[in-house]
Design a protein around this nucleic acid. Structure first.
Lengths: 254, 254
DNA sequence: CGAGTCATTGATCTGTCTCAATATTAGTGG
DNA sequence: CCACTAATATTGAGACAGATCAATGACTCG
């Protein structure tokens, strides 16, 4: 078995390769991930209205940063992002990692300014969805309205789980939960259930999980010594998924 | 100056005292807190449609609990709540404290089941807003639609701040942030800027802030020794607000 | 008034942080 | 292609913030 280290979406469509000029949700291979199902086929083309254009972001660049005025939501087509908030004294907190099909920018709605920064951890492309258009269209289509609500609610629930991690769990539990979550999301996108290439540094993992990079590294090594995973830098192979689940009981955040 | 230890809303309206049979947002004294501004006065009565009825919850009782099917959002009229998620092994994480004018139940939208439990920390009354009605009305009134989106976005941003607290801050910073946040929200409701009665135990504060009850207690005592606050059990008086802000730099979660 | 809940405080322990040295990898330019 | 540099990762030793265990004190409510 060969490992797909690039972690690009499974299917490369012609549409995908044409670049930014033609944009359509209606035949996007990520649609099930980021858009509502249940759209009547005759309404499907209306969905395309929400995507104004596409935008490419190079690794290390910001899609938006805290304080920027909020105008659009972004759906990730390809690539991988982190979002983070930062304190006046420079301390940073990674609030999440986002991959293909996920929506970014919800934090900007409340104040019309982005509250956090979104940084590409690999070259990426996003669909730009002006929020005014999203709102207008979702007044017309209840199924889209419901979908937007679910996306926001899902983010609230996800953050509840992170609070549980940060408030109650030990380092091993946090890292186990992190790995299981990542691999599960990658699997939903057609990647391996057991192998992954981390797109983020130990420091970024640590920031997300509320621990120092040395502790992240040590915990990786510990799992490796115990035969639960195989680690080589950013490459991780899960050898004993059950053991990981036992460390972090997944029913935890029901 | 006398301390209002009951922390009831400032104004007691006749409507308020009549109990549950007449329900109206249009003349509710909490409207600015929980409902959108900018409603045309001729449309104002339509807003009343979203509140199906009121419900009283006694101290210690649950408004909803994790796993319950989700049907409605709840706006707090009086009283004080905590929300929490719990792990399979019994560990609990308090995810928030809610007071008059705030909306609960957003966590239930994504799966049609509540993801956390809401427990009254004092006798409370909530307005029940069936979510289907909220969605229907918000398709008709863009200002209501925008308001719902802002409420959800605000919750996402709040949880981002909590992640920063839990991931990066020390015990003193967490407790300072907690006190400042609490007193600021109470002040917005007409209560003192400097005095408050805590509605929750040390253990609940600790759960929210990711620390043990003993550490909460010790940190209170430390602030007290330093002359920053006066504490007597659940009564807290902030003597030096600037010192508190210096401990937890409030620009932190911008 | 008494039982139970909650809060405070002390003594000790421990998981994670901090500081530091070394190893590995990716990127750059000659 | 290799040497060089900068970024990232690993590992060790010691320090410390907060956890744990334990005892006492204060308040609440029936």
């Amino acid at each position: 078995m060969t490992l797909d280290t690039t972690q690009k979406p499974i299917e490369i469509t012609p549409e995908n390769m044409l670049g930014t000029f033609k944009v359509a949700c209606s035949n996007c291979n990520l649609r099930e991930l980021c858009m509502p199902i249940g759209f009547k086929s005759e309404d499907m083309h209306r969905l395309d209205e929400v995507v104004e254009k596409r935008r490419k972001i190079k690794q290390g660049e910001q899609l938006y940063s805290a304080g920027d005025s909020f105008k659009s939501l972004y759906a990730i087509r390809t690539g991988f992002f982190k979002t983070c908030v930062s304190a006046a004294d420079g301390r940073e907190q990674v609030t999440g990692f986002q991959m293909a099909g996920e929506i970014m920018g919800l934090d900007g709605i409340v104040t019309d300014q982005h509250n956090c920064s979104a940084i590409a951890l690999e070259d990426a492309e996003v669909c730009v969805m002006p929020f005014a258009d999203v709102e207008e269209l979702s007044r017309e289509f209840p199924v889209l309205q419901r979908h937007i609500h679910k996306i926001m609610s899902r983010e609230i629930v996800r953050e509840n789980s992170v609070m549980m991690l940060l408030g109650n769990m030990r380092a091993e539990e946090r890292l186990a939960a992190f790995l299981l979550n990542l691999v599960q999301r990658l699997h939903a996108r057609g990647f391996s259930q057991s192998e992954l290439m981390l797109r983020m540094t130990r420091e970024e993992i640590g920031s997300y999980l509320g621990m120092k990079l040395e502790t992240v590294s040590r915990t990786f090594s510990k799992f490796s010594d115990e035969g639960i995973i195989e680690v080589k830098q950013r490459y991780v192979k899960i050898l004993d998924s059950e053991a990981l689940k036992k460390i972090f009981n997944p029913q935890t955040c029901a």
